[in-house]
């Protein structure tokens, strides 16, 4: 019987909860796979910087030097613009909708189709659930408050904010705190209460806005070298798929369980003011988002195909959510 000794790199640094350590995390995935296969497949995990820098996993898996990488597909936006749709889309799908699309409505097939020419395969392996809008030094009362606001915000959301007059600043994770604390930037987006508290952002800005219009959920991507995947016997493939699916559920529920306590702690013990963005602001963000997404789809045929499929499913899913989840949330607690 062959034993498979594989390597997995990760886009996040050592010790990061959810992204590296903890229930349903990539290291947990490696443990699960070893246990389920009785040691026939062992995956050695390397956090960002241990073997390669954070964002080099895509090329590393493609070259076959490592077999797997854990990251978010939107990190590959410069390589495959359509990949962003497999992490999150502003005003897109929440945890339930995203998984419904991926597992049952053609999402996985489109993902495979996008990656196959590069000899890659991906599986969803985690989800943060809905994120927070971010931290602001001043309250946001109208769209005019975005004018000349300096904000750390990467990716598509940055483009949307920029259209509303925000001055977008790129900063590595570690510099967010000193820059926000001293007012070099006026606002910053990171993840959610549990992760943001680790960075100490509550000591730098007090206005904490919700909801994560820009990241209504966020899929952790397990990237696999296709040739290496094909070399696995069918039972081990099934184990990897099942472990990834287990992590997808376990990581999300872990976030749900921890964010509540973290946000409560931030509000009660750090004087954080948690607030929902005004409706007028959200409406404007939505208008600009539609425009930005349409531009992206027009520029790249592969993106257009994924975009159209995603939006078609979103409409369908929302019609169901509108009569199921939404009224339920409005019931008296």
């Amino acid at each position: 019987q062959t034993t498979f000794n594989w390597k997995m790199t990760n886009a996040y640094g050592p010790g990061s909860p959810f992204y590296v350590e903890g229930p349903g995390s990539p290291t947990d995935f490696c443990k699960k796979v070893t246990a389920m296969s009785d040691g026939r497949i062992n995956i050695q995990h390397f956090a960002a910087g241990e073997l390669i820098p954070a964002l080099e996993g895509f090329d590393a898996v493609r070259s076959g030097a490592v077999e797997m990488n854990a990251a978010n597909a939107y990190f590959w936006a410069g390589k495959l613009p359509a990949a962003q749709y497999f992490t999150t889309v502003p005003f897109g799908l929440n945890f339930q909708g995203m998984n419904a699309w991926l597992y049952h409505a053609g999402g996985m097939e489109l993902w495979d189709e996008l990656y196959a020419p590069l000899g890659l395969k991906a599986l969803p392996m985690g989800n943060t659930g809905v994120q927070m809008t971010g931290w602001f030094r001043k309250p946001i009362e109208s769209v005019a408050d975005f004018k000349d606001l300096k904000m750390r915000i990467p990716g598509l959301a940055g483009k949307v904010y920029a259209a509303l007059g925000v001055d977008v600043k790129l900063l590595p994770g570690g510099e967010i705190f000193p820059a926000l604390e001293r007012g070099v930037i006026d606002a910053a987006e990171f993840v959610g209460p549990y992760q943001d508290r680790r960075l100490g952002l509550q000591n730098a800005a007090k206005y904490y806005y919700t909801t994560g219009w820009h990241e209504p959920s966020n899929v952790t991507e397990l990237l696999i070298n296709q040739a290496k995947w094909d070399s696995l016997p069918a039972d081990l493939q099934a184990i990897v798929q099942t472990a990834a699916m287990a992590c997808n559920l376990e990581s999300h529920t872990w976030c749900e369980a921890n964010n509540a306590a973290a946000l409560k702690d931030l509000v009660e013990n750090s004087g954080v003011i948690a607030n929902v963005l005004p409706d007028e602001v959200v409406a404007e963000l939505k208008t600009v988002t539609d425009k930005v997404l349409a531009e992206g789809a027009a520029a790249d045929p592969a993106t257009k195909k994924v975009h159209d499929a995603f939006m078609a499913f979103k409409a369908e899913h929302q019609s169901w959510a509108a009569i199921s989840e939404k009224p339920y949330h409005n019931l008296p607690g």
Partner: peptide, 16 residues
Amino acid sequence: YVQSSYSINEGSPDPG
């Protein structure tokens, strides 16, 4: 490494 980047016309992951 360069060929891998060139083959997919790699750009910046950030818009703009």
